Simulated scan of single mutants.
Amino acid sequence: MPKPRGRGTAAEPRRTVKASSGRARAAPPEEPRARGGAAAGSPAALRDGAERPASSRARPKGAKAAKAAKAKAARAAAERPASPKARAGRARAAEPARAAPRKRRAPPASAEEDAALSPPRAPELDWDDTQSGSPAEVLAQRWTERGEQLFQELAAHGASLHEYRADLKEGRFVWLAPGGRVSAEARARLLCSWSRATSVLVMAWADPFFRATGVERIDGLLAEQDDVDEEGAWQIAMEAADACGAAYLYRVASPQAWYFLALDALTFAPERSSFHPGAPVGLVLRGIRDAREAIASRAEPADVIRDRLSALSESLLHQARYAYRDTDWVARLDRTGACLMHLAKRIPRESFSAIAAGQRVGEWLERELAVELLDALSLIEDEWSLFG
């Protein structure tokens, strides 16, 4: 198929092939033709070219009218006010050029990426084995390690989950197996006691009830301190244990108070394989006497007196179900604990029910209520004194 002819280009020569000879013969080139179809230089092309200038120079009729219309349109456009778009364009052109926004830089690589890409370095070792921190922190760390050591020794002999009992009168601290056999035993001395109701800490040598079973006086430690929190009680107990050379420090918690004991001479082959707790008479009498003194002296508010009686009641009920279970003291401890709880509830709290009942609610105990509480505590004390 012949290619289309371009403008002003000659046509490609045609070749004809005879069937008999098989040779191709080039056809003579054709003369170029003009765009109108006539060949260049032909009479038709000359005739067309001569006629076109004449037709372009010819003007249409009414040229003056068209010229007048154009002039009128130009005057109307000049008198017309500028459009808002044009004014906005001029205003924008008058504004100062704004700076182009800065290109955002790539965020810096994180420390983990730097560590992953950086070559390995030799580890930095600290060869200083000295302990850092305040003396209180060093003391706490030392006694914490000793406590872990005690637990590991008990676990090695299968006594870490056994119940413990303390008899300060005999100076015994034992761990009891489920069958009642003593699995481990240590010598116990009282360091100090901390009241949960009054936040008062008393050293053993200043407590008349535990003076014979506690440690001797330690220089630098006060005999009694007020407003001591749990952390402060632990700190004082650790200082006392460190001063008296105790092997371990053990806390015995009860609903009424915490007792910090110094343990020594731990053995897993005790001489006595059984344990029988002593009479709870001293524990009950001490709690009742402390409550009577607090009420009679009017040194403590009503809320503190209520908390003291409630804590003593819970302590006796706890001892009846724990240390003195299966003994003859269970019934007496339960009855005394219930009486003390009833006395604690006699002290009104600030509530709508107390006001509706006509009870006087104040910071301090009323005289009549204080007398009733003292009489009831005296009866309980007389009952337990018979067993002393």
Rank of each mutant, 00 (worst) to 15 (best):
114 D>W: 13
115 A>H: 12
117 L>P: 09
117 L>T: 12
118 S>I: 06
118 S>Q: 12
118 S>H: 12
119 P>L: 14
123 P>V: 01
133 G>P: 07
137 E>Y: 02
139 L>W: 03
142 R>E: 14
143 W>G: 06
145 E>M: 08
148 E>S: 11
148 E>N: 15
149 Q>L: 14
153 E>A: 13
153 E>R: 15
154 L>I: 06
156 A>C: 06
159 A>E: 11
159 A>I: 04
159 A>T: 04
160 S>K: 11
160 S>M: 09
161 L>Q: 15
161 L>V: 04
162 H>K: 07
164 Y>F: 15
167 D>C: 05
167 D>M: 02
169 K>G: 15
169 K>E: 15
170 E>W: 06
170 E>C: 10
170 E>S: 15
174 V>G: 00
175 W>G: 09
175 W>F: 10
177 A>K: 10
179 G>M: 04
180 G>S: 01
180 G>T: 07
180 G>V: 01
182 V>S: 04
182 V>C: 05
182 V>R: 02
184 A>Y: 04
184 A>K: 02
189 R>A: 06
189 R>M: 05
189 R>F: 04
192 C>N: 01
195 S>C: 11
196 R>W: 02
197 A>L: 01
200 V>Y: 07
200 V>A: 08
202 V>S: 11
202 V>R: 10
203 M>V: 04
207 D>W: 00
209 F>A: 14
